[in-house]
Design a protein around this nucleic acid. Structure first.
Lengths: 160, 160
DNA sequence: TATTGTTATACTCTATAACTATA
DNA sequence: TATAGTTATAGAGTATAACAATA
């Protein structure tokens, strides 16, 4: 059976279906592996919601953070995303080149920029938030309400 | 405060601590984001267990799969890992160059290799499995037994 | 001195496509 | 024709290090 070509959109290969006839041994009982599989599925859901303009999870995170925390600096944005300053800078460039965000001089500190969404960025992030939230809900739809709350609680406990 | 240099071991930046004073908006209520954070934490636990010889999660998975499914082909290995054939081949090269796995001709099919662990590979994977399982257990130790079972069940339900 | 942003560089991972040899 | 493996290439993502301007 020919394997369907991948969409060339997401950075991940995905395709997490179990291969018939393969013994996965203890992998199925390990949290690291289970988390990876679930995260790939979540990433695919995200890709469906953000399809079209190259928004990746870190870019989406940055847009939300910029909307909720206007005037944040690139360094702090990097801290939030867990990337080096240089990465936060390239990400900011990407947003700025597309007219979604802008750098403004800070009166109090000549070294740092304050980052802000543009009006266009504000509209885009509003649409994105709605679609991503909706897709996230659809993604978790095979869990019941109690299960969803429990899963979020357990994940938070692990990551904290 | 100077940021500590990262260990240059893992492929991920990690550093998932929440930044004080930042409003994360609905990110905290989204499964995609929660999964990503938990997975980064799990990856750090994995890195602690596999430290030293460059074993990454996909390489560990490949070693376990090779031990449990001797004679598997590179294509099927790629299917299991969710990567293209070329990636499975580079991974196989990596294992072979380190004396952990070997390619053997198949009598029934002149195109495909059968992949096998070497004796050294068998010893290495045994040690790794023990350490990774232990670290995985330690990683989940902040959950109770019932919570751990519930989490695995919920993750499986999401990924299936 | 320390920090912010910047730039250049390099490395890892992995996809794609073309090629070969077998089936 | 189809499949397994191989090879070459390219792109994304991100770390590191050095530098200038500012604190």
């Amino acid at each position: 059976m020919a394997k369907a070509h991948r969409s060339a959109r997401g950075p991940r290969p995905s395709s997490i279906a179990r291969v018939p006839g393969i013994d996965y041994a203890e992998l199925d009982a390990m949290f690291g592996y289970a988390l990876r599989r679930a995260q790939i599925a979540a990433f695919e859901a995200f890709a469906r919601a953000s399809d079209g303009i190259g928004i990746t999870p870190p870019r989406f995170t940055a847009l939300v953070i910029l909307q909720t925390n206007p005037g944040i600096s690139q360094s702090v944005l990097g801290d939030v995303l867990g990337t080096a300053r240089s990465g936060a800078m390239l990400l900011t460039d990407w947003l700025e080149h597309r007219g979604l965000a802008e750098r403004r001089h800070r009166p109090d500190d000549g070294r740092a920029w304050g980052l802000y969404l543009t009006p266009k960025g504000g509209r885009v992030v509003e649409t994105l938030r709605r679609r991503v939230r909706q897709q996230d809900k659809r993604f978790a739809a095979r869990l019941g309400g109690r299960e969803r709350r429990e899963l979020l609680r357990l994940l938070e406990k692990l990551a904290a």
